[in-house]
């Protein structure tokens, strides 16, 4: 297990370094000058030049890349061009929203998706299965931002049970902060739950045809005993992969839902930084996200190894 982890960690480090180089130079060829963007079209050229010097933009791309990389090694993500604040601080503020949002949506979608998938598999071909799969299909088909708008209309505009959007920091009013996240979590979770339900069902149906289930049944276990004791654990592997991907999406890919609820999440930070050509924010934030995705995938891999000892063994073999 430890050898397996060490090998994966080395891979993670190389991936990050390559990602950093790609992110930096790809964004460097993007047209648009951050200094001109900030000072506008009526600014004099010397004011723009002064700002470029102040931001360090007058240096060569390679210099800037190594300054950035050097900072990263020291845990310094740089100072935002336009906001003049440390990127670490900007991201930390946004994670107050994005992290609970992603975790909440993932939890809710798991709580809804997995049981539905299991029930559908248990009742394969019967009415329950058909109904569950129709629901799942609808859930996948509905765009989450549209669903979000419906939620706002019903629960915020008409009934005024939840705020229509916005966010106050947790330290201000934890109850209001939590309430602000309820509708976005539901909007994000339902489509994900529908996907999980389908994956869970398919995977479980496959597993139920495996030899070891037949053996279990032959030992005298009932169908549902066999499912719960042997089936679900084995069927979880593909579901874990999907959940890992979903978490990555939920951390930064939720910009449309963030817009509907005007939430200060990571997605909007990156989006506005791109349009303002605040490249240092874009680069550092994307690199952190890449790191997070890699980390999540790393954890999923470890979870695989935990759920399925054969993977662990495979890792050990190639080491020796």
């Amino acid at each position: 297990m430890i050898g397996f982890a060490a090998k994966r960690i080395f891979g993670v480090a190389v991936t990050l370094l390559v990602a950093a180089a790609i992110i930096f130079f790809l964004l460097d060829i993007l047209p648009g000058d951050p200094a001109r963007f900030m000072l506008g079209i009526n600014a004099t050229d010397d004011a723009v030049a002064a700002l470029r010097t102040e931001l360090g933009l007058d240096q060569s791309a390679f210099n800037r890349f190594f300054i950035w990389l050097f900072g990263l090694f020291q845990g310094d993500l740089g100072i935002s061009f336009s906001q003049r604040m440390p990127v670490t601080q900007l991201m930390a503020e946004r994670l107050q929203v994005s992290l609970p949002l992603a975790l909440g949506a993932l939890t809710l979608s798991t709580l809804i998706g997995l049981p539905i998938g299991i029930i559908a598999a248990q009742n394969r071909g019967k009415l329950g299965d058909t109904l569950a799969m129709i629901l799942a299909q609808v859930g996948i088909a509905i765009p989450n931002f549209w669903f979000a708008m419906l939620l706002v209309l019903a629960f915020a505009v008409t009934w005024r049970i939840f705020p229509p959007g916005g966010f106050v920091p947790w330290s201000d009013d934890p109850l209001l902060a939590a309430r602000s996240l309820v509708l976005p979590i539901i909007a994000l979770a339902l489509p994900q739950a529908a996907i999980l339900a389908r994956v869970m069902r398919t995977s479980l149906v496959d597993v139920m045809q495996a030899d070891f289930i037949r053996t279990a049944r032959a030992k005298g276990l009932t169908q549902s005993q066999a499912i719960w004791r042997h089936g679900v654990r084995n069927a979880l592997l593909p579901v874990l992969t999907i959940m890992g991907l979903q978490f990555a999406f939920l951390i930064a890919g939720t910009i449309i839902v963030e817009n509907v609820f005007y939430l200060p999440g990571l997605g909007r930070l990156i989006f506005s930084a791109i349009s303002a050509r605040d490249l240092i924010v874009v680069r550092s934030a994307i690199l952190v996200l890449v790191a997070m995705v890699i980390l999540v995938m790393f954890i999923v891999d470890l979870a695989y190894a935990f759920v399925d000892p054969r993977i662990r063994a495979g890792g050990g073999r190639s080491d020796g």
């Binding site: 900030m38 000072l39 009526n42 600014a43 004099t44 010397d46 002064a50 102040e54």
Partner: peptide, 8 residues
């Protein structure tokens, strides 16, 4: 000289 005023 190093002013970054947008309406210099």
């Amino acid at each position: 000289e190093d002013s970054t005023n947008a309406q210099k």
